[in-house]
Design a protein around this nucleic acid. Structure first.
Lengths: 213, 213, 213, 213
DNA sequence: CATGAATGAGAATTCATTCAT
DNA sequence: TATGAATGAATTCTCATTCAT
């Protein structure tokens, strides 16, 4: 029914797109503040200075708005995993360290992101669509880390006999455990992260042979 | 479901106590099923076969009922940490293994417990009272693990130069990371757990010296 | 879940039943006044002097309330067709006359009933559940008239060669046509009704033979 | 659907007129489908492939659009009553038969027309403007039938002692009753119509004398 | 202890309408 | 003419809570 005049790049005017982005950002913040329990679209509209009904013009339902938040979050999480990351050639080791550093930065700078992530992660246990999205996200992270380790091995940095799958899973578990850690003082948190990073490196770096019991 | 007409003694009759426990259990299950977002006291009342007004006799408010669930959960988590655990003397190592095994069993047998735990953990970021409870819980766990490692060192099982604090934090992070792992197939999960356990042991067992980079 | 103590006749307390009946009556009147288009449950609540939410306690949804109105209407229409009608032995002819008189009275005394009937009849074109109810109602009326004519024939009052089916249909059509007649002045309406009644009798009474062209 | 760029002359360009007609047709169909209750102008706009704001350019309000539908319907009903109906001289009898046949065709071919008619007829009980229109429509029909019967009498086809007013009213009642009949199977409907037509003719044809009781 | 009826604030959503471009 | 964005009042419905019995 909507006629596309073949000119526009997308189907939405830039004005509407900006509005939508703005609303998503507010929703994002409010979910972080109040949780999905306690998240009210009226408040989103109020903070955007628009009418309650106008919000429904852009997002037909509350769920649609939440989905917008999901998309926003996913996009953000994925961009950070972009190859090379615009800072030229990196060793696998420095990239691995960046993984830990990345979590640290997020915890410092955008803790609300991780709060929203947690909220949605829990929701994904009940919401199949969200579950699928999170699975994909996880798989992407997994593949990224496997690739990273493989490169490290090829570069001669990491142990040749490293079994990739369990190692990657362990790294993911560690980082996830950090995220869901109940708030620690910053000092302790940084210390913990560096320890975990060190421990991980100690596990995978070439030259270390770990004796299994 | 049927109430017997026994006469209560004390400030709260045993009947009322049973009713409360029953309601808490139902609430517990419903929070696991629907999340705090989606948790409705009317449904608790309905499933208990009582009137919604009657529920308010036992728990004056929704928050009070949730608090009941929190207490129930905390009690359950703490009892499992009871020293010796009624099965006599154990080595620190076997106790450490039990920590991992415990998580495994919970994930298999009572995953809803961990769901509720997650729900409440997120809530604790916003709810100071809950935050305090969780901090206490965490501190208890922390103290328990520190004690465990100290015993292990005293028993000559664990490395003498083990720095307790980071090590305990790392174990907690690992176990927490497991819990918040998005559902994995059982096989993979078990494998992951055993790998993490092995890795941990390899870190702390006497006779292993880990070279730091 | 609701426990029935085996004592009550129904499952509802008389208070609730009265309230429901009261609400249905108000809804009935308002549908007659404003049509289904324009019918608002808030107004029902307001006119009953109760809160908007209280209405939802008795009728979980707008549709449930409308269904209540349907039941009320159907019951009313059916009771008037009760056999014998408490005024002793009647000839089939007098009963037939009563059919016309009944419509006349309804048009005079409770025109809103016919308005609501019309509203719902139109709705039944789109609503299968309502359609079923109306079909049943129609079938009941049809059976009643067939029975009436048969008795008349047995009593020797009506023509023996009367073909029942088309005759009954014709009577129904006439009465229905009257109901849906756009408002006529009372005099004209009464005249029309008596003419139709006379015409009908002339058709079916014994001793009249109608020549078909 | 595609609008051509022709230039309009007069107060309203033919393009705009076409657009209006198109919108009315869609509105007409949607009222038949969903009823006035359930009729939404946004849906009209959507089905016309235009914006909801644009619709307001053509019809300043919802009521205006409905009025457009009324006009459309009235015009259609009236054209069918045009004298002679372009097929030359007809006897009054054949014209009378055509009245019944007309209803039959409408019920078969354009039942939605009768649905809309019903919707609006009910509305006319509450809407004075609509009431006036329907009264005029009815009066037109009435006059038409009176004229028809008079011609029949003059032609010697119909009984001389026919009292026009009640007879015409009866015919109208019958036809209206047919329209509001809850859907019957086609066979039964056709049978019913022919029986009613026969019965009517039997009443009014010269040579039949009906004995009043 | 228990109930059913009532409450009322507030939730999401709908929809005709307006207006600048 | 046409559009898209915005409006705001109104609507149904939800739900924790209260209270007389």
């Amino acid at each position: 029914m909507k006629r596309d005049l073949g000119v526009g790049i997308g189907t939405q005017s830039p004005i509407a797109k900006d509005r939508k982005r703005e609303l998503v950002k507010i929703a994002y913040r409010l979910i972080a503040e109040k949780g999905l329990e306690g998240f009210r679209i009226r408040q989103v509209a109020a903070e955007a200075g628009i009418d309650n009904g106008t919000l429904h013009y852009h997002f037909p339902s509350k769920e649609a708005l939440i989905q917008g938040v999901v998309d926003y979050l996913v996009r953000d999480l994925e961009t950070n995993r972009a190859p090379g990351n615009k800072n030229g050639r990196q060793t696998a080791l420095s990239e691995l360290r960046r993984e830990f550093e990345d979590i640290r930065l997020r915890l410092h700078d955008t803790p609300e992101q991780l709060v929203v992530l947690s909220e949605l992660a829990i929701r994904s246990w009940r919401d199949p669509i969200l579950a699928k999205i999170f699975r994909k996200l996880d798989d992407g992270w997994y593949a990224h880390l496997v690739n990273l380790l493989e490169r490290g091995i090829r570069q001669g940095l990491f142990r040749e006999d490293l079994s990739l799958q369990p190692c990657v899973r362990a790294i993911m578990v560690a980082l996830r455990g950090i995220v869901y850690q109940s708030r620690l003082p910053r000092r302790e948190l940084d210390l913990l992260l560096s320890q975990l990073a060190a421990q991980t490196e100690c596990w995978i770096l070439a030259g270390n042979s770990v004796r299994r019991k």
